[in-house]
Amino acid sequence: MFEAPTIGIIGGSGWLGRSIALAMLDKAFVQPDALVLSNRSASHPFADSRWSQVPVTHDNQALVRRCEVVILSVRPEQFADLQICAENRLVISLMAGVPLEDVARRTGSRQVIRAMPNAAAEIGKSYTPWLVTPQVTDQQKTFALRLFETFGSADQVFSESHLNYLTALVGTGPAYPALLARTLFEHAVNSGLPPDVARRAAHAVVVDASQLIGNGHSVDELLQALISYRGVTAAGLEAMIAGGFDTTIKAGLEAATSAASSMNPFARSADTIEGPMTR
């Protein structure tokens, strides 16, 4: 069944759902007629005529009936109003903070995967942690990993708490680098640089120079090498650290993790996938 299943994306015209759909199509992971999208208006989300064969509907249950795999790409508060029966389907939830047990209970599927891609899926650079119920088969896990790798890289994790933490760390996508870029930009402008120059300089630091990380250079190696010169970079790094840079970042991650753990609209939580899910 999972050699070439029909895949449905509920919320397929949203930013994330649309990005994942396009990645699967561009990589030929799924054929256009084996992908079904649903949205409120049933309007087609793709301008590219190559994908005009992709069916679009506003009837979520009709999508479920046509598909072996159902991807839920909706906001958690929207899921509270979503009424589908997806028994005997593989359900992949992309919703932050909604535990596996609640997805299973509300969809009728015991084969559920929680995954947390981010906005970098749009450029094929998402990092996607994922978690499964015990009923998900090895074949389905292999399929899911291949699907996630169409828009980046992925790791399986084994507890809800780990997935919630990674939601805070990587589910935020470009938000943390964007905040750093804005701070660098604002300081440069306040120091008298023309805005265009300041913007390009901040971009060069956050986007371009950061590509050295992982390209033959570990984080620790880079920091140690730059600090050891005892020059301009060392002065900047040491002042940032002394000013509480590390503490501020960690506080932000703690707050984001707390939010990810408490945003479930059904007010349920689970640290692991033990208990009712093993029935």
Rank of each mutant, 00 (worst) to 15 (best):
A201D: 00
A209Y: 01
G231F: 12
A235D: 06
D208H: 11
L212E: 00
V207E: 05
A198V: 04
G216W: 00
V206Q: 05
R230Y: 06
G236F: 03
Y229M: 15
A201T: 12
R199T: 00
D196G: 07
V232D: 12
A202E: 06
H203K: 14
R200M: 10
V205T: 13
G214M: 02
A234P: 01
V206N: 02
D220Q: 14
H217Q: 11
E221W: 12
V232M: 12
S210W: 00
L237A: 09
S210A: 06
L237Q: 04
N215H: 12
V219C: 10
A198D: 10
V197S: 15
Q211I: 00
V197N: 13
R200L: 11
V232Y: 11
R199Q: 13
D220H: 09
A202Y: 00
L222A: 10
H217E: 07
D196P: 00
G236V: 08
R200S: 07
I227F: 09
V207D: 03
A204F: 08
A204Q: 08
G214H: 05
S218C: 06
S210Q: 00
V206K: 01
L226D: 03
L226I: 11
Q224K: 15
Q211F: 03
G231T: 12
A202H: 01
V205K: 07
S218F: 07
R199K: 11
G216S: 06
V219E: 11
H217I: 12
G214A: 09
Q224W: 04
A201S: 14
A234R: 13
D196N: 13
G231K: 12
G231C: 09
D196Y: 08
N215D: 12
H203F: 13
R230F: 02
R230L: 01
T233D: 06
A209T: 10
A198Y: 08
L222Q: 07
A209L: 03
I213E: 08
V219T: 15
D196Q: 14
G236C: 10
R199H: 06
H217K: 07
A209M: 06
A235E: 12
V207H: 05
S228I: 05
A202C: 09
